[in-house]
């Protein structure tokens, strides 16, 4: 680690003031940041410890639920309301990392989790995300983990998390505070595509800090989080699907889906719900949904498999949700 100045924020405003400096980073659970600081992928001059601010509460908000930015992954997944009303979220969190990590990792930190691209985490390799202009080692390199949707010639990294994928399916909202006030951003718009500025993972501006994620009122339907991974636990997704699907009178009435492991952000394509809702479920219909999802998908050699794998995983989830027999 580079030497840094450690400051503990006593108030949120203080934290956001400090974090406005481009060389300052907020520290919450630290499970990703400390990891990256050891590798000198992250080299902040100042760390603002926000870990003791009172932002860990999980509370009812209207019919929905407000999950404080510092609520741990463990607390969220074990929360009775999350288990009862938002099981896709509990399942997604539990499918990620390990209990030790989830005990430390926070909601805000998890949203800001950086990619696991091998070239990003190795400072002796080119990476436009870590060092803009240095090139992308993955495009012609080891790209097994990498994206097939929304990639750019500058970056094919994926957002590695699970929690945010479920939140995208649930259409949750990220609450943000900064020097210029508070704002809300849908989780679906929180992460960015890499384009020409892959160094920016998300829409947070300097000094902005996530304060909470708000889940809308629960909706009826079957909640599924399906993660395909190489190990049976403790591995990042090759691809994952978060789904809330409801049926009435033989037709699909709701199909909120989001995908992990495929892109620089949790992938949500509104056209899929448009196609599925009001239709009778069938393998042919699911195939069309996969066509839509994977329109424009591009593999980079080693990750070509993600295209058929995603098709199959989506079909599996929709069969499970609707009872269609394969």
């Amino acid at each position: 680690m580079r030497p840094f100045d450690y400051q503990r924020a006593e108030r949120l405003e203080h934290a956001s003031q400090l974090a406005a400096d481009s060389e300052t980073l907020p520290l919450a659970g630290g499970t990703n940041l400390i990891d990256l600081m050891k590798l000198q992928v992250e080299t902040p001059q100042t760390l603002v410890d926000i870990g003791r601010l009172s932002m860990g509460e999980i509370a009812e908000e209207g019919e929905g639920l407000r999950i404080g930015a510092l609520a741990t992954n463990t607390a969220t997944a074990a929360h009775p309301r999350v288990r009862a009303d938002y099981p896709v979220l509990a399942r997604a969190i539990l499918a990620g990392a390990t209990q030790q990590l989830r005990n430390k990792a926070t909601t805000g930190g998890n949203l800001c989790q950086r990619t696991r691209c091998y070239y990003f985490t190795n400072i002796d390799q080119p990476c436009n995300k870590r060092e803009p202009g240095s090139g992308c080692g993955a495009i012609d390199g080891v790209a097994r983990l990498h994206g097939i949707l929304g990639t750019s010639p500058q970056c094919i990294a994926t957002y590695p998390g699970d929690m945010a994928v479920a939140m995208a399916a649930l259409d949750a909202t990220v609450e943000i505070t900064g020097e210029s006030g508070e704002r809300s951003v849908p989780v679906r718009d929180f992460h960015r595509l890499p384009g020409d500025t892959p160094e920016k993972d998300n829409v947070l501006e300097p000094g902005e800090i996530i304060t909470a994620v708000t889940l809308p009122a629960p909706v009826s339907g079957k909640h599924i989080y399906r993660k395909v991974r190489e190990r049976s636990s403790y591995a990042f997704a090759l691809c994952s699907v978060a789904a809330i699907v409801d049926m009435a009178e033989g037709r699909i009435t709701r199909a909120d889906l989001a995908f992990g492991g495929l892109a620089h952000k949790p992938w949500h394509d509104p056209r899929i719900a448009e196609l599925l809702v009001d239709s009778e479920p069938s393998l042919a219909l699911f195939d069309k949904a996969a066509d839509l999802l994977l329109e424009g998908a591009q593999g980079y050699g080693e990750n070509d498999f993600k295209i058929p794998l995603t098709r199959r995983t989506l079909t599996a989830v929709l069969c499970d949700a609707t009872g269609v027999e394969a």
Partner: peptide, 13 residues
């Protein structure tokens, strides 16, 4: 073990 095709480094280290 996954080796980089450009410089031979072990990627998943």
């Amino acid at each position: 073990l996954l080796f980089d095709p450009v410089d031979g480094h072990l990627a998943n280290c």
